[in-house]
Design a protein around this nucleic acid. Sequence first.
RNA 1: GCGCCCUUAGCUCAGUCGGAUAGAGCAACAGCCUUCUAAGCUGUGGGUCGGUGGUUCGAAUCCACCAGGGCGCGCCA
Length: 601
Amino acid sequence: MSANLFALYRTRVVEALARIVPELPPEVAARVEVTPTRDPAHGDMATNAALLAAKPARRRPAELAAELAALLSGADGIESAVPAGPGFVNLTLSPATLRAVLPAVLAAGEAYGDSAVGAGIAVNVEYVSANPTGPMHVGHCRGAVVGDALANLLARAGYAVTKEYYVNDAGAQVAALAWVVYWRYLELLGTPMTEAEFETLVPGGALQYRGDYLLPIAGILHDAHGAGLADAERRPLPPAVWFERVRGLALDSLLGQIRDDLARLGVRHDVFTSESAILAAGAADAAIGRLDQAGLLYEGVLEPPKGKQATDWEARPQTLFRATAFGDDVDRPLRKADGSNTYFANDIGYHGDKIARGADVLIDVLGADHGGYVARMRAAVQAIAPAYAAAGTVAFEAVLCQIVHVIKDGAPMRMSKRAGTFVTLRDLLDEVGRDAVRFTMLTRKPDAQMEFDLDLAVAQTRDNPVFYVQYAHARCRSVLRAAAAMPELGDLSPAALAEAPLDALQADAELALVRRLGHWPRLLEGAAQAREPHRIAFHLNDLAGDFHMLWNRGRDDATLRFLQADAVSATRARLALVAATAMVIRSGLGVLGVTPVEEMR
RNA sequence: GCGCCCUUAGCUCAGUCGGAUAGAGCAACAGCCUUCUAAGCUGUGGGUCGGUGGUUCGAAUCCACCAGGGCGCGCCA
């Protein structure tokens, strides 16, 4: 039997519908849904089959629903099927069918609910990709958590997932970084030069990245080279002497910090791809060549941008990619005024590289400030896919993560990189811990702005979902530990509990929990297909709610308590329920990257 | 000016490729501690789903326009 009850009964419904309406078009059959009911009074599941079939069959929905219900009433495991509302058919499963969810969970363990919808599809999820010019802050953190959970989720749905980090180590920002670090180094040596004087040497004429976090790097530079990177008067040497060393050391150091931050956050990428390595391998030029061969490049002049001060605007011909042929608003430049590649050109090369490595689907998890970038990248991926992919097409998807506002003591914390008051990821982790950061970041759709309430994230109360879900798991484990100390209950291994008779599970609160466990496979698959890991977080919150409710019922009604020494069979049935609940919570927390704690003390 | 995202209860947010009476927590109000953990529980009240039209058997969901908030708009990454 399929572990996914909804998928199973969907096929039954479609078969039954095909007998009533043999000429049903396949595209209509494909839209048939069997969904959990919102109202328990409507049974366990409902289908819209009759509503969909009514039009092509030229029949009244209610009439079809009645026939469908009659046909399904005899079906295996269905206790009743009744037409309802405008043409739904509500299905109520037999208690035995419902309870059979428990042995299914116990047998599969944390793999319960895993799906094969993604089988044979390689997905590359690129996330974080913070520039190695400073420490990670909360803005990066959301993308890190969302990308990581999304990648985990897709893996559970059968996709072959690569978690990737793109290291932007080739651009002007990294050059600027090297100049600042070098200046800090000179300062450390006690250079007689003034900062203003030094800045006249800097390309662009000004130092960037003034944060204190660069001071230790200057220190490392000093440890490694002593005064050897300056002249005898502690004044700068030509860049040819020091630039590559300083740049390399700064990059290593900052990337090391980022990796360390990510490790603390529990994020681990499979692949770190270096932009400079990609460029050195000629990926960008190769991609540009492919676009040229395909006739998608031309020399042209763009309109000046609207709504922005166009004071320094100068119309000039440049190499443009015909992005408008693939749905973008304007064609996009690939070369700067000095003839070097734009970032976009390099990024096309990088995406080509990901495709060449075998990805069928590219997912970029980006900050909201990259929203304007999506259309052109999608256009570029479509344009180069025929040259890079065996199948000739590659899907490009972007998940945009909106701004996170950190709230403390009820007031938003101002964040400014320039003023050095932004909240670093490390500060956030120190303040609230990994689990709270990860779970909280996933309790909101990524494409909506979110407020991160520091006080709530650490609160040990009902309204903190992290706590609430972890507490439910801890309670389950606590019950199982207590049961293990009762020898009269016999073998309590999952395999043994999977064989336990379950007839004793009769109470509404018990069956509600069983139902919720039965929803898990459908939810996991749907969340993966929609690329929405936050659904997992909400489902776990609901599941925890069902469990806590049952637990609390035991307070008023002693017959509902899990452990009863004088009712061994009923206790074993309830332990099957508790063990299955713990497994699903653990499984879901695994997707989110949150620890399933054993106890809350 | 143009493009993308968002707008659901006093607050923070869900809402399943359109489905039945739009849900949860907090806050408010009324109760509940000798308990397998009160770090909690039970119940009550609370909605013009930003607005106006449209498509549909059916719209919070799709489309158009409008309002408000966010992000972006060649030679940054």
